[in-house]
Design a protein around this nucleic acid. Structure first.
Lengths: 297, 297
DNA sequence: TCCATCATGTAAGTTTTTCTAACATTTTGG
DNA sequence: CCAAAATGTTAGAAAAACTTACATGATGGA
């Protein structure tokens, strides 16, 4: 094994993109970095970077090594942070979709705070699956098919996508066959989320009349749907109560098998994260995704 | 971040289990280790090991840190080996079940060697999912439900378990209803494999008469089955040719959804491994698991 | 085209870290 | 209860990593 300090210098060089930047990052002079890189290349008997003019470029071997070393140091850094006091109290950062957050997670948070009073939570309702970097997000709850490679994926709730609207609106659409839906306005979230992909898969752009798509924030969409302002694509699990109460009716359903997944980094988890995952699992099993009757019998 | 050398000393200490052993492992004196551990604990302001007499014991924080650091250094070590061994051409080590190896993998290996002449393969037909440690196995092909956490899992071939026997034997058993099978001898592999778990799940020990289970090496089992020596539990995919040719007939089938999976470590893969995985994927898609007619129509 | 500027490469000397050697301390097994 | 074996501790030696200082080469604007 080559000296670790040389590997760290190399990792910093790749991350920072230049020798001086890497030096600043590690709090040393550029000469230190330069020497370490040279020593590393000599120790491995291998060229890692090649310079064309002022531009730095990685060789294939360099790229491979950089990626592995970055991961390795990341893992170590995370482990160190986990046991260090400052990070012990760092709040759990959970990334999730805004709809899941408002409809499922937030209403249950009281139970979590009761069970784990010492753990602070930060919910980040973001559209995309944020990278679970060290120091960043601890876990994510995502909607999809569970095919995220390189991550620990655990099924929480089966959540097929459905199209809902208020009963009045559907009656008005006369039968609510797919063709009948064409004339109705669509409610769509501002950001990309679990539903927008469904809309594009189904070719809703073509179905809907121009000007009949209303964009609005996710948390307001359900209210708009209940008020009869249009069709909304949602996950069945989250609007079960509305359906049962007759406030919303199912107009269409997706055939693909989608669900909410708990996504974490493989490997170690700090105690607070373990507690959160355990809690989410239990909450999800208490309220399993129910199988409802066929739409519009 | 504490000094990396201290972390490595700590990692070695945990791995080796004692200060002297760790010192030997790193090629230094015991004093060096002792000092590094002390420095690390001071830097983290945290107790990592606690001694009761001569016995060393890890604290909770120590255990957590040790695990993370071990993973991290492992990842780094692997990356380094990948780029240094690229010249040395360490052979790919593939762990798989003996039946899959003999019936599927080996017959296709010619195509792989043709496509990648420079890559040496080592097949290890072992019953259990070997740990994919750095320097050890690169990939495994396993039979199961794909629920291996912490590993990259990719479905290769749907492979339901079935019970087969020669047509003559089944005729003799008169109808081959599950009850009719009770009197027939069972063929079983010596080692644990994809079939033995099925046997125990189905309670075959009770079904079969005492003395009527023949244990033999996996590669001989199919021949024995063809020769009419007994019932064999196999994956459908691997005996499709025998069934089509009428040499074997299906007597029972498992209901659970099982398949062969390509299992790798998450993260980086060296070029030879990437090539192998790609090849396996293509081979598997060329010969997809066919859906056959119901058994014994 | 040329020169100022900026990023990097190199070498010698200094600082810092890490290791060893030697000795002290503690525990275990006979 | 003592010898052996493992660990803890310290001062000084060895090794490493870093800084300073200077050299080289590329870039871009005058």
């Amino acid at each position: 094994m080559p000296p670790l300090s040389a590997l760290r210098a190399f990792s910093a060089l790749v991350e920072a993109g230049s020798v001086v930047a890497a030096a600043t990052q590690l709090g040393v002079t550029h000469a230190a970095i330069s020497q370490q890189i040279r020593a590393l290349e000599k120790a491995l008997d291998l060229q890692l970077v090649s310079r064309v003019g002022r531009k730095m470029e990685l060789t294939d071997a360099g790229r491979h090594l950089a990626e592995g070393v970055r991961r390795g140091f990341g893992e170590i850094q995370r482990a160190v942070e986990d046991v260090t006091d400052e990070q012990r109290q760092r709040p759990l950062q959970i990334s999730t979709t805004s709809m899941f957050a408002s409809s499922w997670l937030v209403p249950r948070l009281g139970s979590f705070r009761l069970a784990h009073p010492g753990v602070d939570l930060v919910l980040d309702p973001s559209p995309a699956l944020r990278p679970l970097e060290p120091g960043g997000f601890d876990a994510a709850i995502r909607h999809g098919k569970g095919d995220w490679s390189g991550l620990e994926v655990e099924l929480l709730l089966p959540a097929p996508l459905i199209v809902v609207a208020s009963p009045e609106l559907l009656d008005q659409a006369n039968g609510a066959a797919p063709e009948g839906l064409a004339g109705l306005p669509w409610l769509s979230e501002l950001e990309q989320n679990e539903a927008s992909l469904f809309l594009s898969r189904q070719g809703v752009e073509k179905l809907a009349c121009p000007g009949s798509v209303i964009h609005l924030p996710g948390n307001l969409m359900l209210e708009a749907a209940r008020a009869g302002h249009g069709l909304a694509v949602v996950t069945e699990t989250l609007v079960q109560a509305d359906i049962d109460a007759g406030r919303l009716q199912i107009a269409m359903r997706d055939v693909s098998e989608r669900a909410y997944y708990l996504v974490t980094r493989p490997g170690l988890q700090r105690p607070a994260l373990r507690a959160f995952c355990k809690w989410v699992r239990r909450e999800a099993s208490v309220t399993p995704g129910r199988i409802v009757a066929a739409p519009r019998t």
